[in-house]
Design a protein around this nucleic acid. Structure first.
Length: 489
RNA sequence: GGCCCCAUCGUCUAGCGGCCUAGGACGGAAGCCUCUCACGCUUCAAACAUGGGUUCGAAUCCCGUUGGGGUCACCA
């Protein structure tokens, strides 16, 4: 047996958006495939498991594509890109499942069953009442019901004795007794397969060599292994990723805030930061916290994936996002922040105007350095940038009330002169002039700087004052100062 | 409840029998820097769930207990 070329897959069911947990599963698979590719050949397959026709939606399919694309998780085979195992939607592969199901029936490893679901539900409830485990009693095992039997489903015949063991890549050896398994339904009456069968058939048809998925599938694994064996195909390697929990240690859900990957995009996170965070949730490489995508691909290793469930920590993601912002080249950041400039500019208020049409990337790059260390998200960054990019000020009332007073008016007038004389000489010259002014008035620099800051930026909190003023340019800075002076009256 | 999995600071984790008076990161506290904010820097508080073994030696290996999670569908 030669080692097969690594082929992995991500197989979401389109019953909702791409959430954090699914995204991490996709990421780990993708990372593994990309590293394998660097060493020769590795393939990442995307397959849509839409066999739950009740809950699957086209909108979810699109949301999954969009989420993966945003994160940069491109697939080598699957919807949109095609591949040698098309189609990649399970509901379009019914003939394939039928083929394999018939093989199982012919080999007496599966059988048709026309038991009514309602009847079985009654038995199940009864068993539950008596606190017994319930297993399908095998009523139709020997009936040999023919194809075409009305309402018949297909059940897989589980062995009565023995046990199945597999060596999970992250959890180690796991053994399950066959007594725990029942003859489960693998194909519905309408020919649509159920999860355990559809996934197995597709994974073997598509030559998947490693199945990496969520923790909640460990109990399914032995049953699936039995199916691989019944179908006479080699069993892939399995890796089960621990769950991602919310702060209350419960499974992550909408209650815990944003769980859709696209929500993080909308909230101003860089895809690289989310990827970085997700990679470190459950996997580690010594003490390193920040990884570029290239480093992740190079260093990712299943051996370093932990077996413990992890709590999603929004604070750490936020910190990481800022680290990524600071590490992103300015021109790239300018392009990234643009869309947020558009959405946030709707909120600038009546006292400011924003001319997006004439906004150049060069201008964004020029003011960007001031925002780097003050923005944890692209939203915060856009808001801060708008202070530079808009014409006019929006005063923070508390700040204005405190600093734009009659006492401050002479200082603002004096500041106006300094603007006139020194601005062209740069922030340092301007600062020196203000320091001289403060000394002459026997005041601390802060006493003058704060009113001027409020006048120019609208708030007591801003980037360094003199840099800000110079960046604004003489015309705009004067305009704002005059507005503040006028406001005092 | 049956079966399965898991167990180091509040959180993510390093640790794979001696290097551990248990390291890093987020968050928290204090301080420094300073025109405000932020960044940065320094320092501090903070963990091996518990009881037995094995061993010269255990956070590391084994068993029990406790706790947490998963799963018991014609969902995936």
């Amino acid at each position: 047996m030669s080692a097969p070329l690594p082929r992995v897959r991500f197989a979401p069911s389109p019953t909702g958006y791409l959430h954090i947990g699914g995204a991490r599963t996709a990421l780990f698979n993708w990372l593994y495939a990309r590293r394998a590719r660097a060493e020769g050949k590795g393939t990442f397959v995307l397959r849509i498991e839409d066999t739950d026709r009740e809950r699957s939606t086209e909108a979810s399919v699109q949301a999954i594509f969009e989420g993966m694309k945003w994160m940069g998780l491109d697939w080598d085979e699957g919807p949109l890109v095609g591949g040698p195992h098309e189609p990649y939607f399970q509901t379009q592969r019914l003939a394939t499942y039928e083929k394999h199901a018939e093989r199982l029936i012919a080999a007496k490893k599966a059988y048709r069953c026309d038991c009514k679901k309602a009847d079985l539900d009654v038995l199940r409830e009864q068993a539950q009442k008596e606190k017994r485990g319930f297993k399908y009693p095998g009523i139709c095992r020997e009936k040999n019901l023919p194809k075409g039997t009305p309402g018949a489903i297909i059940r897989f015949r589980m062995p009565d004795e023995g046990e199945t063991t597999f060596d999970d890549l992250v959890k180690g050896p796991i053994t399950t007794s066959h007594k725990e398994m029942q003859d489960e339904v693998i194909v519905r009456a309408d020919g649509v397969p159920l999860y355990n069968f559809g996934a197995v058939v597709d994974d073997l048809e598509m030559g998947i060599t490693m199945v990496a998925r969520g923790d909640d599938h460990v109990v399914n694994t032995p049953r699936q292994i039995l199916m691989y064996q019944a179908l006479d195909y080699p069993v892939p390697v399995f890796a089960h990723l621990p769950m991602i929990l919310g702060a209350d240690k419960q499974r992550l859900s909408k209650r815990h805030g944003a769980v859709s990957v696209l929500q993080y995009r909308d909230d101003g996170y860089l895809p690289g930061a989310l990827v970085n965070y997700l990679a470190r949730l459950g996997w580690s490489h010594g003490d390193q916290e920040i990884f570029s995508l290239a480093e992740l691909i190079e260093k990712f290793d299943w051996k370093a994936v932990g077996a413990t469930a992890g709590v999603f920590n929004p604070d750490k993601l936020l910190w990481l996002n800022q680290q990524w912002i600071k590490a992103t080249p300015l021109p790239e950041l300018a392009k990234l922040v643009r869309p947020y400039l558009v959405t946030r500019s709707a909120l600038i208020g009546p006292t400011r105007t924003f001319d997006y049409a004439s906004l150049t990337d060069a201008r964004i790059v020029e003011v960007l350095p001031q925002a780097l260390e003050r923005s944890k998200t692209l939203i915060e960054m856009a808001d801060l940038l708008l202070m530079f990019l808009c014409s006019g000020v929006a005063f923070d009332e508390a700040s204005a009330k405190k600093h734009l007073t009659a006492d401050a008016k002479p200082l603002l007038v004096a500041a106006r002169d300094l603007f006139e004389q020194k601005m062209a000489d740069g922030p340092h010259a301007l600062e020196a002039a203000f320091r001289d002014l403060a000394t002459a008035q026997s005041l601390g620099l802060g006493k003058i700087a704060q009113p001027v800051r409020v006048a120019v930026t609208g708030s007591t909190v801003s980037p360094p004052l003199f840099d800000t003023i110079v960046l604004l340019g003489k015309a705009e800075a004067m305009k704002r100062l005059d507005a503040a002076i006028a406001r005092i009256g």
